[in-house]
């Protein structure tokens, strides 16, 4: 598999276009990291104003997705990219969709905080923050893997989702137990349940992006692969 290089085309303009495309994903990724970080701070401090800001800023993330999609369309129409360039453009288009969806999940959590519906239970908030910080690490690691086109880092981050899923299951059962205890506030607790679910979904989306990075750099589709074969792939890369 030839090493992936972005800036070696005869056409300097094409080099710039691909570099800008990749940078645009990183800009969008940076924005989404900030959104998640603000949401976790708003959750910790019960800061409704900050949560409202996150909800508003999601429009910016949506606009970035549309701009990047348009640029991918333009590059495909004008440049007819092939091989690694084609994989790059397709990966960017799919990654952008997932980042935008991550933005929607974060917005859902921020909306709950903005409405003043954080759960009464300090334990649940603590556990939500814990899973949130873990998701934050995974998001950061995933975006770094994309920035460096590092398939090994992508595989490592991919496996983080298992741990997040385990944390999610524990938090879910705790939340359900709280719901049973506080059945008069069931509607509020449902919002909490959705927010917990949203955090877990961010992990799933990061996992998707890791798959795209692996496809981009290795040319292999790792979707729906059993974990054992991924372990082998990771060892091959070492």
């Amino acid at each position: 598999m030839p090493k992936f290089k972005l800036n070696t085309h005869i056409s300097a303009r094409f080099n710039i276009e691909l570099e800008n495309l990749r940078n645009s994903v990183l800009t969008m990724g940076g924005a989404i990291e900030q959104q998640l970080s603000d949401t976790l701070i708003a959750m910790r401090d019960n800061n409704r104003g900050l949560a409202e800001k996150v909800v508003f800023n999601d429009l910016n993330v949506n606009s970035m997705e549309m701009q990047i999609d348009e640029e991918c369309l333009r590059i495909i129409a004008k440049r007819h990219p092939a091989a690694s360039d084609l994989r790059m453009v397709l990966t960017v288009a799919k990654t952008t969709t997932d980042i935008e969806r991550i933005g929607d999940e974060i917005e859902r959590i921020a909306r709950m905080i903005a409405k003043g519906k954080l759960p009464d239970s300090a334990d649940i908030i603590k556990n939500m923050l814990s899973i949130g910080n873990h998701v934050m690490e995974m998001l950061r690691g995933t975006l770094n893997a994309f920035a460096r086109l590092d398939s090994q880092a992508a595989l490592l981050m991919y496996r983080e989702d298992e741990k997040i899923d385990a944390e999610y299951k524990n938090l879910l059962s705790d939340t359900v137990a709280e719901m049973q205890r506080n059945s008069e506030k069931l509607e509020d607790w449902l919002e909490v349940l959705w927010a917990v679910r949203a955090l877990e979904r961010v992990g799933d989306r990061c996992k998707n992006i890791c798959e795209y990075v692996f496809y981009l750099t290795q040319g292999k589709d790792m979707r729906h692969s059993p974990m054992e074969s991924l372990q082998e792939k990771l060892e091959d890369l070492r």
Binding site: N20, S24, T27, M28, A31, L59, N60, S63, M64, Q67, I68, E71
Partner: peptide
């Protein structure tokens, strides 16, 4: 809104 790509 952030403008990601310049086009004239």
């Amino acid at each position: 809104m952030v403008k990601l790509f310049e086009r004239n």
